[in-house]
Design a protein around this nucleic acid. Structure first.
Lengths: 247, 247
DNA sequence: CGAAATATTGAAGTTATTCAACTGGAGTGG
DNA sequence: CCACTCCAGTTGAATAACTTCAATATTTCG
């Protein structure tokens, strides 16, 4: 892990953000708001920050002040267990909000690290609650976002009864769906994370992930070339393995 | 499953609820509110409902209007998978809020059934958002509750790397902690759910749960007598197996 | 009391993990 | 440019863990 200790204090390249002109409007907080309301949101957003690959956005235990929305790039969240093992808790792409877990105790409960050069918009949480009071639709939408996060986490529970291959397919379908919503190909994409990180997230060992990939390729369902994945028969994948393709 | 279809429409024994005089004040929504604010909350809460053992509070797919706080009793939430398997998503005791997952799409995403005769307070969600606008501390506390739910669900992910016995211990420690907060013994309690429901929740088969119980008893760490559990050496349990004792 | 549901336990079978060897690519420095 | 190293990934064989099937015991509840 590179020495990037004080990133949270010394964030570089701070750009004034603007929701009004942001390409993520339809995926992000502003969904369903009218012009005037989006302008109010512009005042809320402090600034954008660039986070380079390998740098942390926040670490478990630090004070919580702001939520962050991924604008570009890709993040991993994880916690360190007592025994030192790293448990991955999620992967996050543009439009998704980071830090919702920290509201509960005003302290971050997980670490967030960029898996590629990324940009985030900072949302001071106190300010969000303030503006929310005057824009009910914004507050309501924020509640939906928090609720969606609860549903997302719950989705992981559903993997409980599945076998390794099924879990991996559910994971791939989930990624596929999220890429599609962002305008990328749902059939052909690059994994940003290692086999070990996938395994940690799914509760499997890296070797098991590797074998499951090989097996799916043998069966002709996908093509794997290192991090590059191609889904050859997405309908078959959907039918055969659960429906965890939802967001 | 008993025929109790229209429960949500025909809830029985509706009592006017009052937070001001409720024993759960320190566990529930009113935490940290002053007298006046709690009285405002009294207006928010529609009524209490009695739900008998085996009856459903809500079912997946139904429209969402109200959150419910467990006042007395014990609930299980679960989803039905395509293949008909029942996946348990949580167990809920007094002071805990049900329905947070439903905000996301104005539709319940899970079923909630009472595992013993229970009572819930109904919180119409639109009304909660309205009153929250005038009582910032209430709104803020509500956000903390949602966030806590996210952390709770995430906690389940941490079981990913654990073995059957460890998962079960984590589960028991979690129950123990929640009982303690409610004034019950953390060392000696009654399970309200079956081995199969525990297994479903933890991603294990009922036989595995049964064996894990037997093993823990052989080792002298707990006493099991059907649903009655006694933790003989809680420190040892805590040390040996993760720290999932948090709420 | 008797039927149905729940729980326990054993033995066999499956699946995932562990340990270990090996491959291939990215980056380094001579 | 090549040799070298490091890291990620793949694969095989042995082991451990969990599940499945099956038989039996116990509890719950009408």
């Amino acid at each position: 892990m590179p020495p990037d200790s004080l990133i949270t204090k010394k964030l570089r390249s701070n750009i004034k953000a603007s929701c009004s002109s942001c390409g993520l409007r339809e995926l992000c907080l502003p969904v369903g708001l009218d012009e005037q309301e989006v302008r109010a949101l512009d005042h809320l957003i402090n600034q954008r920050h660039k986070i380079r690959r390998g740098e942390h956005l926040h670490r478990a235990g630090l004070d919580f002040h702001s939520l962050h929305v991924v604008r570009t790039g890709f993040f991993k969240t994880y916690v360190l267990q007592e025994d030192g093992r790293e448990q991955v808790t999620g992967f996050h792409m543009p439009g998704e909000v980071l830090g919702l877990d920290a509201i509960s105790a005003d302290t971050h409960t997980c670490n967030a690290v960029a898996l590629e050069d990324s940009e985030v918009c900072e949302l001071p949480f106190a300010k969000l609650e303030g503006i929310g009071r005057t824009i009910p639709s914004l507050m309501h939408h924020f509640h939906k976002i928090m609720s969606r996060e609860i549903v997302r986490e719950r989705g992981m529970l559903l993997l409980g009864g599945m076998k390794a291959g099924e879990r991996l397919v559910a994971f791939l379908l989930n990624l596929s769906h999220r890429f599609a919503r962002r305008g990328y190909s749902p059939l052909d994409f690059n994994l940003r994370m290692t086999r070990e990180e996938i395994g940690s997230y799914l509760g499997l060992k890296l070797e098991t992930i590797s074998r499951a990939f090989s097996r799916l390729q043998e069966d002709g369902l996908i093509n794997v070339n290192n991090k590059r994945i191609r889904l050859n028969d997405i309908d078959h994948l959907r039918r055969q393995y659960g429906s965890s393709s939802c967001e």
